[in-house]
């Protein structure tokens, strides 16, 4: 069976979703305009990290957890960082596209090997690979070693924003990319491909009987998630102006898994909301309780997974009582028997 986007979301639903995505983007940009300057940077980082989380959410829907996506995040960041600092390419869009494609290629290469793994072994194999990248970067004096690489200020379509506008321009760019990626992913999750992905978690053997190769599905999702992580890493590199090997360290990957579970597998906007909540909580606790922020962060996570089993994204649905437009229609598929 070949998988193609099902015709269902075409037409009205598609138009509606595009309208929703544009509306969200407009709202985000408006909020950015009105928000105090100190909130902008954290919001930008949250949106960029939300992209990484989005990729992990896709894997989570298949029942897979990667403890090594910091590798792709870091790889994307270094591709952008090195192109900008070494080759003098500063256009934000070009850098992000290059990083995304490069990371997708790396994802494909590793995915061919990893698609046969499940559970803890999938998680740990990813971890091992990311730690190899971390070690290699730490050791590479020519790539800045542990101190990392400085990334020059980006330009947007040939324009370099003046000093006071840099944060806002970065925010606008990242918000646009995030909304576009979110919309594309919504299309994927509504397609036949998106629906059968859920089947991998539910029951692989049934997929076999349908003539669908779970391995190939995992490969597709893995490459997508790698590309998203690379995109997120590239955006963080452009926005923060500095990349370090620690982006590939296992605690960074752990942080993404943390946000993914915090967000829940339910929705696309939830991934960004989860990243936002995480960044805000970490910033606030770090600023006011520099000696106990880990304790509070840990406690917060425990409470969320205890009382919001489907993550923060379930909160919105619970409150409004309506289905989230981006949630997969099949809901969660439970593995039985």
């Amino acid at each position: 069976m070949t998988l193609r986007p099902s015709p269902a979301p075409a037409g009205r639903a598609l138009g509606l979703a595009a309208a929703v995505a544009s509306a969200i983007l407009a709202l985000l940009l408006l909020a950015g305009w009105a928000a105090p300057s100190w909130a902008i940077y954290t919001a930008t980082i949250a949106l960029a990290k939300g992209l990484v989380v989005l990729g992990l959410v896709m894997l989570l829907r298949m029942g897979l957890i990667s403890f090594g996506h910091g590798m792709f995040y870091c790889f994307g960041a270094y591709v952008s960082g090195l192109l900008a600092s070494g080759a003098g390419l500063t256009d934000a869009l070009a850098l992000t596209l290059a990083a995304t494609l490069g990371t997708a290629a790396l994802g494909l290469l590793l995915g061919l090997l990893l698609a046969g793994y499940r559970g803890v072994f999938f998680a740990m194999f990813n971890l091992a690979l990311s730690m190899i990248l971390y070690g290699a970067l730490l050791k590479s004096v020519s790539l800045g070693g542990s101190d990392g690489v400085s990334v020059p200020a980006p330009s947007y379509f040939g324009l370099v924003p003046p000093d006071g506008m840099r944060s806002l321009a970065a925010y606008g760019f990242v918000a646009t990319i995030a909304c576009a990626a979110g919309f594309l992913l919504w299309l994927v999750s509504r397609s036949q491909l998106g629906l059968v992905l859920l089947g991998v978690k539910g029951n692989e053997i049934r997929l076999d009987y349908l003539g669908i190769s779970a391995r190939r599905l995992i490969l597709v999702a893995y490459v997508l998630s790698a590309a998203l992580a690379g995109m997120g890493g590239s955006l963080v590199a452009i926005v923060s102006g500095h990349v370090i090997p620690e982006m590939a360290y296992w605690t960074t990957s752990g942080e993404f898994v943390f946000i993914t579970v915090l967000s829940g597998p339910g929705s696309i906007s939830g991934a960004f909301a989860g990243a936002g909540v995480f960044e805000a909580v970490r910033l606030a606790t770090g600023q006011y309780l520099p000696n106990a922020w880990q304790l509070l962060l840990g406690g917060f996570l425990l409470l969320v997974i205890l009382f919001l089993p489907d993550g923060i994204s379930s909160l919105a649905r619970r409150r409004t009582g309506t289905a989230d437009a981006s949630a997969p229609p099949a809901g969660r598929v439970q593995g039985e028997g």
């Binding site: 100190w38 963080v236 500095h242 970490r282 600023q287």
Partner: peptide, 24 residues
């Protein structure tokens, strides 16, 4: 004075630095 924890890596520090300057 305000005290800030430096742990967490460069990206986190940029965030906290901006917060120190722009909000505090």
């Amino acid at each position: 004075f305000v005290q800030i924890d430096e742990s967490g890596g460069a990206q986190v520090q940029i965030q906290r630095y901006r917060d120190l300057v722009e909000r505090e």
